[in-house]
Amino acid sequence: MTGDDNAAITADGLRKRYGAVQAVDGVSLSVRRGEFFGLLGPNGAGKTTTLEILEGLREPDEGTATLLGERPWPRNPRLLPRIGVQLQASAFFERLTAREQLATFASLYGVGLRRAEEMLARVGLTEFAGTQAEKLSGGQAQRLSIACALVHEPELVFLDEPTTGLDPQARRNLWDLLREINADGRTVVLTTHYLDEAEILCDRVAVMDHGRLLRTGAPAALIRELDAPTRISVPSGALSADEARTRLGKAVEVADDGVSLVLATRSPAPVLALLGERGALHGLEVRGGTLEDVFLHLTGRAFRE
């Protein structure tokens, strides 16, 4: 047992092999209580297996995991009521309404029906309480499955790609909900393919590939660490590409696609000064590196699966 009372999750040297595939290859991480933690990685990176080991669904070949001071494996009935796991939206009882699903899960945890009603309101599904789960939209189903994971007020919540397949409105809507959950003081562990989402929501992220953690840290810190060039763009025509090249020299990469003039550089000050001098700041856009750049830098651009 680790003595760190402040840790929601401590994993030390987790390894798991399936046949010839080393799915998880020495993962160590720690998540503080109250933290919003993202686990990122391409398909097949070992995220799911890592989560399953943490949740207590699988036994690691090597290494130990500790959640809230308890061992998740073998199945630990003391720990189960304290964690909430949101699986894919399909993990519902057939032909049961939203309200009935929640009530069923609530009573599995010995939680009253009133709490189920509250949860339904919390995820904004009160008006769909009588709708069978199969007939809910993608976003509604995701919200219901999150409600099912939260109905017993767990201290630690695992969310597995909760926004996959949602339209932008539903995604934003769900982000608000996830932030609220975290603001309640719950620790949230999230996996996602959307790096903008991770960047916006997570306090810290871990990027994983080939069963290993490549980098862990706050999104902003990882982006800074990458030292990606700043991309400055203005509408084409305000300044010609040739002039930009002669005036700014080799430190600036210049491209003009007829719509925008894009200037990529690690020292943006002279570029902005030039544009200001030319009165070309109308429609100016400045973009630094993103978590996506970090991700692609760490995991490469090759196709997966």
């Binding site: 949740e55 207590g56 669904l57 199945r75 009935p77 189960l80 009521p81 964690i83 796991v85 699986l87 894919q88 399909s90 993990a91 519902f92 009882f93 057939e94 899960f105 599995l108 945890y109 010995g110 099912c148």
Partner: peptide
């Protein structure tokens, strides 16, 4: 089989049942 396929069994395994 349906519960296993729909991952309800997995969900139940994570509940104190």
């Amino acid at each position: 089989v349906a519960w296993r396929r729909k991952r309800i069994l997995r969900r139940l395994r994570l509940a104190p049942v």
